[in-house]
Design a protein around this nucleic acid. Structure first.
Lengths: 201, 201
DNA sequence: GGTGGGTAAGTGTTCACTCACCTACTAGAG
DNA sequence: CTCTAGTAGGTGAGTGAACACTTACCCACC
């Protein structure tokens, strides 16, 4: 998001500019002319580095969108001395921040199904994609269940869908409503507590 | 989504065609020429009914996107003889279907922040918007709590965020991955059960 | 005879993309 | 060590196509 220094390689500056504009003025109005202007180079230079506008967008998606999976893996690989509740809270907090950063561009893809398809097909061989965090959280919950730290009848897939879904929708709504970013701590805490305790009497 | 009959009023046919194209080829490629062709009229006719392409899109969003709020209100106003679990299951099922239908267009908005802003501002005076279902489900849970049907310490806002967030993200992922629609019954059942029982031991 | 709803054929603008050319650097031959 | 040819990376000035939108006109109906 931060405008890259003029010293950075042109390719990097173009990716930065494209990412920034996709988020700010949107995929629709992020033209090659605007991107080149923001990157401080000519349109022709842009085409020296990317063969088409679509290829540039795909490169932004694959090289710039952060990945939640590895982040979750770190959190879960190191249980530390935290209890399960603190652990789930931390996961929710990270997920909320991650989705907050990636939602605008991720959702934009639906405006251009051809681009979405290209992005999806580019992700597949890497084993990446927005469904991976769900898988990984569910796997984590399964091991916790095996160690008797959560209820033996708990449904890991449903629990993962609930926790990450809430964080995802929160990010979507915040952007939709144009609200300022705000710490997700209280939100994460309430989610983890509610998910663990349930709401039945 | 179904192509309107040629007998329908032109304005209706244009809205239908625009909605269909926004979902199928995407906001980016839904041009006035294509929309007119799909509606079986001339571009000029389109401009007799809508002063600009943006106004057409806003009209599609406001007149065609279904509302989840009223649907939830019906479900919740008539508790019938169902227990709380069946009720939550039914809510989740409806929400999953609703989000499945509205996600492609809803997400598209992020590709054009100016359009998103216009849509949001048009929704505000009507008291509508994607955050309303959360509010309403939370209110419902509050009354259930007051009647002692859920745990007195339950957090209605967190519970609503978990349940609807899971349905929302499911729809997003299904469209992202290009999966075929599939009954949401098992999903809804698992969510409701997990939310009620919690996963703690 | 004016008005609502329709059309064919534009118009100017903007878009993604290209072309001819330039400059700096690198590498190999003499 | 120098000459030279190639190459990577850059530019200003286009180009044709596609776009949102308009104009001039038509016609059926009150």
């Amino acid at each position: 998001m931060t405008p890259s220094s003029p010293a950075a390689p042109t390719r990097t500056r173009i990716l930065d500019a494209a990412e920034e504009l996709m988020g700010s003025i949107g995929l629709v109005r992020a033209t090659t002319k605007e991107i080149a202007r923001a990157a401080g180079c000519s349109e022709a230079a842009l085409y020296k580095h990317f063969s088409s506008k679509e290829e540039l967008f795909v490169a932004v998606l694959q090289e710039r969108l952060p990945a939640l999976g590895p982040l979750l893996r770190d959190l879960m690989a190191d249980p530390g001395d935290r209890g399960i509740e603190e652990c789930l809270t931390e996961i929710a907090r990270s997920a909320a921040l991650f989705y907050d950063a990636s939602t605008p561009i991720g959702a934009s893809l639906f405006a251009d199904p051809a681009l979405l398809r290209r992005h999806r097909d580019g992700l597949r061989p890497m084993g990446a994609g927005p469904h991976q965090p769900l898988r990984e959280l569910a796997a984590y919950l399964r091991t916790e269940r095996a160690h008797g730290r959560i209820h033996p009848d708990a449904n890991p897939d449903a629990a993962a869908a609930l926790l990450l879904g809430a964080c995802f929708q929160r990010a979507f709504l915040r952007h939709f409503l144009g609200e300022a970013p705000e710490p997700a701590d209280a939100f994460a805490t309430a989610l983890a507590r509610t998910l663990l305790a349930g709401i039945g009497r």
